[in-house]
């Protein structure tokens, strides 16, 4: 990673923290059937998968089901993973989206069934279809924004220092570049470079993750 990045940018700030190379190893191990790799992948990404599911579905029970299914699916379909430095999170999030949308689809069908069963009650309020199709569509839209935010948050957490720390100081704690330089003891130019590259790096991750 470092040499590729150095070649691309030809500068003193390495493009990545080495985290991706590690991720690449995990992806390769998973594809090759190493259960230890699955365990490590679970350790690192199950909070992301579980939180996406929780935010999209709203119940702990369903979120846990989905998380369980995602990692079992990941194991079973490991041969479909092409290990690259960014592929693994995107691949996991893709599986997560599928599981969530299956679940939302079941909800919609169920809601329609109740609505039609209830509609047969003489004199009942039969007009509304509670939790109907439009509500589900809104759920799905909202879920898309949630996934983006969570993926970025997870990537920020996983990003090695100093880059991760610099990004958090700038964007979550609103420190100026000068304050960050002072706080970290790094040259101002280095701070700026980390911010720009960090932003570009996150944007690439996001693009991979989007369906």
């Amino acid at each position: 990673m470092a040499s590729r990045a150095g070649g691309l940018y030809g500068e003193q700030v390495s493009s990545s923290s080495g985290v991706e190379a590690d991720v690449l190893d995990l992806a390769t191990g998973l594809r090759d059937g190493d259960r230890e790799c699955l365990a490590e992948i679970f350790r690192r990404w199950s909070p992301l998968v579980h939180t996406i599911a929780l935010r999209s579905l709203g119940t702990h029970h369903e979120a846990e089901d989905v998380t369980q299914m995602v990692f079992i699916s990941a194991w079973r379909s490991r041969h479909t993973l092409t290990p690259t430095e960014n592929a693994l999170p995107a691949w996991l999030v893709g599986i997560t989206r599928h599981r969530i949308s299956d679940r939302l689809g079941e909800r919609s069908r169920e809601a329609r069934k109740v609505a039609s069963a209830v509609a047969m009650v003489p004199g009942s309020r039969s007009g509304g279809s509670p939790g109907g199709a439009s509500a589900e569509a809104a759920d799905v839209d909202a879920a898309a924004g949630v996934v983006d935010r969570l993926v970025v948050a997870q990537q920020l957490e996983a990003m090695g220092d100093p880059r991760g720390a610099i990004l958090r100081l700038a964007f979550h704690e609103d420190l100026t570049h000068e304050q960050i330089a002072e706080r970290t003891g790094l040259p101002l130019g280095t701070v700026k470079s980390h911010l720009r590259r960090g932003l570009a790096q996150l944007r690439k991750t996001l693009e991979e993750v989007r369906p």
Binding site: S46, P47, H50, R149, L150, V152, A153, F171
Partner: peptide, 15 residues
């Protein structure tokens, strides 16, 4: 960038 800023408010719930 907007997502990075918004991501600051996110917390994760481990299963």
């Amino acid at each position: 960038l907007a997502l990075v800023v918004a991501a600051g408010a996110e917390t994760f719930t481990a299963p």
